[in-house]
Design a protein around this nucleic acid. Structure first.
Length: 570
RNA sequence: GGCGUGGUAGCUCAGUCGGUUAGAGCGAACGACUCAUAAUCGUUAGGUCGGUGGUUCAAGUCCACCUCACGCCA
């Protein structure tokens, strides 16, 4: 039994996320967490909302709410949706928590003591009307290159020329539209990542078993151009963790906050503190401090590829640079993007399915199965309604759902709703047990390796094995000449249901529960021995025929959804 | 423009350290069965492995160049 710490990338607070965000981090993390728990490991699975930064402030202003209140509301919404998808977080925290404030300030202090913080004075655009400094992309004006009138301060969307905000003709604030802009000096803290380049490099080089996607992105940032750059970790904002050097004020940094990318990963640790403070756990340090037992912990992170640089470089730089015995990540599972029907998901264009909409259409298990069995592991993947309908109907309704249906109904009509007791197992039964034993071992190996799609494939094959057995043995035929033999066949097939339930639970937890309940079977835990598990429902055991596990998606539904979520075309 | 990741049967994807006839699921065709959500099971389907050139006894699998897609950066 190992102790497993699992974190999923933190979803940003400003609105409901689309399906790509789900499959890129939280869902596979949940799959892994559920699997490891089922196998008897001790698991701490943490996630949180990432709440700081300019976009949160702007979204709050747009909603007409104080930012703290806005974040509190959106956090509740996201927590509700996460629960709707069955995400089994041990704690779903908030990067704005008091715990994270303290911890972020502590790390900054430790890094400063280690000589890894530099104070840099910069010139930045300040909007008098908005009373704030403006990030480059919140400044618009006329492009000096092509004359496009809505060029952003960092780049012109029309001619793609890279710009500096001061290049723009008639610059204005995109927040207020004000042209009353001026350049002011401001001081910021920089994390001297460049000093840690060699340490990070050798650390990454040792991770040969990590997905190439993970290591290639990290190596690129380490070696591209001038190598790893120092990074500003503070901003001129109101909403965030106030800059302090541990418990002490930081002279010259009054009124500033830490940059969201500095405090967000630290929330992984703070979330464990929140977990304890919420009364759900007792010892967060044993998960995070190597001097308090975390050396025994295996820590796995899940994230989309856009988050990889921060998890392979910035956050490790924070951890290593602190000089304190914090736990470093052991394995980073990263994912590519999920596209929507030939393009990207787009919030502004209303393209694609968002998480709350998805749950209003179909139960979570449908989404979990499709998303996980099509997880973008090796390259970007694509969601189409046609593919979704075909996969879900075939895999869930036809292969798994119908298996449960056909055998329970057949038993009911011939033997009643009780596991029949006559007959004995023969060579065909032994062969099925041997086959399943092998397949379960392969399934476990894929799950251990977090090979999500391959795990789904193997699980599907396990379901199909039940249908193959029934088809070959044909108890409906056997029954006519040798009812005892048919009874034994039915007994074995019925026993497959609780086995399937336990094996499938990480993917489709709701259906798994329904299957166990219908069979009147307790969750007997992971099958250590397939043969033993298949004796779980003894002769005479009563069961009920469950409702249809998965209703099929009709062509009408698919067509309706296709048009509903198409959004406005480009 | 530089870098990264991909481009394998109609579709979605596997292919470990290069090695006999390139695999799976779906779809399709045909057949079997009729217990079941018209579900299931079996068989078949012959894709110049994006293109060109090269290394090698041998390349989808290594190298170079080209091309397309996506992403990152400048």
């Amino acid at each position: 039994m190992t102790r497993h710490l699992i974190t999923s990338a933190l979803p940003y607070i400003n609105g409901i996320k689309h399906l790509g965000n789900l499959v890129g981090s939280q869902l596979p993390a949940d799959l892994f967490a559920r699997y490891l728990r089922a196998r008897g490991h001790e698991v701490l699975f943490l996630c949180a909302t990432d709440e700081h930064g300019t976009p949160a402030e702007l979204a709050a202003a747009k909603a007409g709410l104080p930012v703290a209140e806005y974040c509190a509301q959106l956090h509740e919404q996201q927590a509700e949706i996460a629960a709707g998808f069955g995400l089994s977080f041990d704690h779903f925290g908030r990067s704005s928590s008091a715990q994270n404030h303290r911890l972020t300030q502590h790390f900054a202090g430790a890094l400063a003591d280690a000589g890894l913080i530099e104070e840099v004075t910069q010139r930045q655009v300040y909007s008098v009307a908005d009373a704030r400094f403006l990030p480059d992309r919140y400044i618009e004006g006329t492009c000096p290159n092509c004359g496009y009138d809505s060029a952003r301060g960092d780049q012109c969307d029309n001619c793609t020329k890279q710009l500096d905000p001061t290049d723009l003709i008639e610059p204005r604030s995109t927040i207020s539209g004000s042209t009353e802009l001026e350049t002011r000096e401001t001081k910021h803290l920089f994390l001297r990542q460049s000093r840690m380049k060699d340490d990070l490099d050798s650390w990454i080089r040792g991770k040969e078993d990590w997905p190439v996607l993970t290591t290639s992105i990290a190596k690129k940032w380490l070696h591209d151009g001038d190598g790893l750059q120092d990074r500003g970790i503070t901003r001129d904002l109101d909403w965030g963790v106030p800059v302090r050097k541990g418990d002490a004020p930081w002279p010259g940094m009054e009124g500033k906050v830490f940059y969201v990318w500095f405090d967000a990963p630290i929330e992984y640790i703070a979330a464990a503190q929140e977990w304890v403070d919420a009364g759900k756990g007792s010892d967060w340090e044993s998960w995070w401090r190597t001097d308090r037992g975390a050396d025994d912990v295996r820590y796995t992170q899940f994230m989309g590829k856009d988050n990889v640089p921060f998890h392979t470089l910035s956050f490790p730089a924070t951890i290593m640079g602190s000089g304190e015995p914090w736990k470093l990540v052991d394995y980073i599972k990263s994912f590519n993007y999920l596209n929507y029907d030939g393009g990207q998901f787009s919030t502004s264009r209303g393209r694609g399915v968002f998480q709350d909409q998805a749950l209003s259409l179909l139960p979570a298990d449908y989404w979990r199965w499709w998303l996980l069995s099509h997880a973008p592991e090796t390259s970007d993947a694509e969601f189409t309604w046609e593919n979704f309908q075909a996969s879900v109907n075939k895999d869930l309704a036809d292969v798994l759902g119908n298996f449960v249906s056909r055998i329970t109904k057949f038993c009911r009509s011939k033997f009643g709703e009780t596991v029949p007791e006559a007959g004995a197992y023969g060579p065909a039964e032994e062969a099925l047990i041997a086959d399943l034993t092998e397949r379960v071992a392969r399934y476990e190996a894929q799950m251990d390796a977090i090979e999500v799609r391959k795990s789904a494939q193997e699980l599907r094959a396990i379901w199909a094995a039940g249908n193959e057995y029934l088809q070959a043995q044909a108890p409906w035929t056997t029954f006519k000449t040798d009812p005892d033999r048919a009874a034994a066949q039915v007994r074995l097939a019925l026993n497959l249901i609780p086995l399937y339930a336990v094996l499938s639970a990480p993917f489709v937890p709701e259906a798994a529960r329904t299957m166990l309940e219908a069979m009147g079977a307790p969750d007997a835990g992971w099958p250590g021995n397939v043969k033993t598990t298949l004796g779980q429902l003894p002769p005479g055991h009563a069961f009920t025929v469950p409702e249809v596990l998965f209703a099929k998606i009709t062509d009408e539904q698919r067509e309706d959804w296709e048009t509903r979520f198409a959004g406005t075309r480009d």
